[in-house]
């Protein structure tokens, strides 16, 4: 696949927040918005060749609609080196505050894609009161492509709920076969408080 004659590109990994009411955006809507942000920022982005040329940008694992994040990732290929601080400033200038890049750094061209590099996600749920306990069910039934599927919660929930006053953190693992959505899991848990918001606060490699 790799063309030895292809011009060298620089791979910029950008970490961004998606918060407030913009947590309501779908993955596709976020992708479109970020592409337009990159264009507004006038970064020297690379363009694919072929029938339908498009920006060389790759997004991390999708965030469910309604879940916010402080640590989303996209990788952008640039045709020339731009100092990370300069790229960050340009991107911020071209962003709305609730969907804004917070960090830019260059990574290896061969580093794994953002969508598979970080299978572990840590979430923080905020409740309208202080829950005494959160009891996860053994299984959760979800409908995928019109088929009902039963997910075993322990396959996904790698770090149990840690409760601190009105907030709880927990970690979910993405499997090659799919993931368990944090909002769906919480909706199936026994908990004596109502969920106000859910935020992805970290993405990391498998331990």
């Amino acid at each position: 696949m790799t063309d030895p004659n292809a011009p060298k590109t620089y791979r910029l990994r950008c970490t961004y927040v998606e918060q407030g009411r913009l947590a309501m955006l779908s993955h596709l809507e976020v992708a479109h918005t970020l592409e337009r942000t990159v264009r507004r920022a006038k970064l020297p982005f690379a363009i694919s060749q072929g029938f339908s040329p498009h920006m060389k940008i790759a997004f991390g694992a999708a965030l469910p609609v309604g879940v916010g994040s402080t640590c989303e990732i996209f990788d952008l290929q640039l045709t020339r080196y731009v100092p990370p601080a300069e790229a960050l400033a340009a991107l911020q200038q071209a962003s709305v505050p609730d969907l804004m890049v917070q960090d830019c750094r260059y990574i290896e061209g061969k580093a794994p894609a953002a969508s598979v590099a970080f299978p572990l996600s840590t979430y923080e749920a905020i409740f309208d009161g202080s829950p005494t306990a959160i009891e996860a069910p053994e299984t959760v039934s979800v409908v995928r492509k019109r088929k009902e599927k039963t997910l075993v919660v322990t396959d996904y929930l790698v770090k149990p709920f840690e409760i601190e006053e009105n907030r709880a953190t927990f970690a979910l693992r993405a499997l090659p076969t799919g993931s368990l959505r944090p909002d769906v899991l919480l909706a199936h848990c026994k908990v004596d408080a109502a969920v106000v918001s859910i935020t992805r606060i970290a993405q990391s490699e498998e331990r």
Partner: peptide
């Protein structure tokens, strides 16, 4: 809001 079909119809804060 999350129950609405396509909540992004209603949220404003768009660029511009």
């Amino acid at each position: 809001m999350a129950r609405a079909e396509r909540p992004s119809r209603y949220i404003n804060h768009e660029w511009g």
